[in-house]
Amino acid sequence: MNPENSEIGKGRAGGGDVIVETVSRLMVPFIQLFALYVIIHGAGGPGGGFQGGVIFAASFVLLVIAFGIVDAGDRFPEAANIAFISLGVYIFAGVGLLCIILSLGAAQYLNYGFIPLTTHFEENRALGIDLVEVGIGITVMAVITSIFFNLAWKRESEEGGREE
């Protein structure tokens, strides 16, 4: 990108600052790894799908702040965000309906013990909680990224705003 485009930035930091770009490029994988840890750790301690999804979305917000919304926002198309939102809800509801089917008439929605992942009822329950948390995390991550882009991105006046 041309330098006079980057120094406007609409009052936002980044867009050519080498320190901000390098630090955020180093920090983003660790933030995402911490988010995955929070999602997986949520069954047995503080954390869970919601908090992990928010932390995962915060790494995308950091990318946008560092690299500018036009350059970073092109990597998160709206259709992919909507697909991720639906995918998380489908994982959640799919695990629940699988429990209804596998509980054989008892109709126990989200009773994870009936999923035959292992031979023990309690281990099935722990693994089912992790599956549902992954679904919640995907949905929350995509929703918060989508809300942030819709708040910050002037899509319709983008062509008019870039040449000034």
Binding site: K10, G11, Q51, V54, I55, A58, I144, L151, A152
Partner: peptide, 16 residues
């Protein structure tokens, strides 16, 4: 995570 992280980013995005 939500109050100090996401909400602050949302409010700054709305302020821009």
């Amino acid at each position: 995570a939500v109050g100090a992280g996401a909400t602050t980013a949302f409010l700054i995005a709305a302020l821009s």
